[in-house]
Nucleic acid binder design. Structure first.
Lengths: 207, 207
DNA sequence: CAATAATGGATAGTGCTACTCTCCAATGTC
DNA sequence: GACATTGGAGAGTAGCACTATCCATTATTG
């Protein structure tokens, strides 16, 4: 398969395929001459994955490179999740109030001692974002978020394939990135469904 | 308060405040002369909100304008949520398989007849993103997502203030946007916590 | 009251990202 | 042998969120 066929098979323009090759998101084809190469199904699959990450997954080229590197060269199984999360989590903001997060989550019985500080920082940044926007969560809602997050994590960890490091890494890394838009959309849909049940067709103010 | 004081009070450069004024994200100050104006606490609060939306909330200028418009001119209470969601949900993709989403969610007992099609489309796009990336959810995980989304929505709908339309709109719109980063970060943290419980310090493969 | 600074308003420019275009010699196809 | 395609590299583009500059007007200060 030559580059134009690869492009046709995936719907990605040839120029963009070349760009991904240059950026290291796509492995090179097999050389048949100094200026010619052949591509195969592995390139088609990888190209679809790259597009899914950049499109639906909403990650940048640089993040995609980190994610793909994690998939290509599975790190030691220790801290597998931290590796996956590091590929997409912003570096820890020094101003983030991690202690507050530890206090809240320990109230839920979460043991966060060995968690990645960057993820704790991301939670702290999320809470700070609410405050910056002058938004106060109704009482109990944060607890509901914690319970829901734990339920989700429970199901996901149960589902991690254990037969090989490659499969586990792939599942965790892609699950982290690609599932996020789905979760957010499901939340919005559930809000509309629950709102309909609670208030009928009229919305929360009754009209 | 003049523009330089407004800028100092919020940490936003003067040039950026001018930009937000031009873009309609910030209301004009009170004119004291054809080329002079005064700003007050409402501008400080609004500016902080704009920064929270653009920063932590991760929305674009155009989305922020739509969100702020929804807050400024509360729509009829009917379809309040749909209005909030429309401000930030991408327009419905014609290729989205909405029927599949209706089938899955009706299996959960969700009544989606009166839901915004764009939100159904967003769920469909999320599922399609998984497929495009060649990623298969472990069995039962999607059901867990549905349950968690419903639990979250239940708590959020319970928390909507009902004393005024303005408060309700503000709560729903900001809650939709600003809470998203928090939820995603909580999920990552929960994954690490649950992983630690399940596998100890070694990660899912045991090493 | 004069010198200096700050303001609102408009326009243009910046840095970044994700492509996209153009060119070239080397290679492949009919 | 004519023509298209390829890999490779560099330059160009569009969109976004600012940021800088300019200018006439207004405010402040000594």
């Amino acid at each position: 398969m030559r580059i134009s066929q690869l492009a046709a098979a995936t719907g990605v323009p040839v120029a963009t395929v070349k760009y991904y090759l240059r950026e290291g998101l796509l492995h090179e084809g097999e050389r048949t001459a100094p200026t010619q190469a052949l591509y195969d199904d592995s390139h088609v699959a990888r190209l679809r994955l790259v597009r899914a990450l950049l499109g639906a997954g909403g990650v940048s080229i640089a993040q995609a490179r980190a994610i793909l590197a994690a998939i290509d060269e599975p790190p030691a199984a220790i801290h597998l999740l931290a590796t996956a999360h590091n590929a997409i989590t912003a570096p820890l903001d020094a101003a983030a109030d991690v202690d507050e997060v530890r206090a809240i989550t320990s109230g839920w019985g979460w043991r966060t001692e060995s968690c990645d500080p960057a993820v704790l920082g991301a939670v702290a940044a999320g809470l700070q974002g609410l405050r910056d926007g002058g938004f106060d969560l109704a009482p109990g809602v944060l607890d509901a978020y914690g319970r829901a997050a734990r339920d989700i994590a429970q199901a996901e960890i149960d589902g991690i394939p254990t037969e090989s490091a490659e499969a586990a890494v792939r599942y965790v890394v892609l699950g982290t990135v690609l599932v996020e838009p789905l979760l957010l959309a499901l939340r919005r849909l559930a809000e509309q469904v629950v709102s309909g049940e609670r208030f009928g067709e009229t919305g929360p103010l009754g009209d």
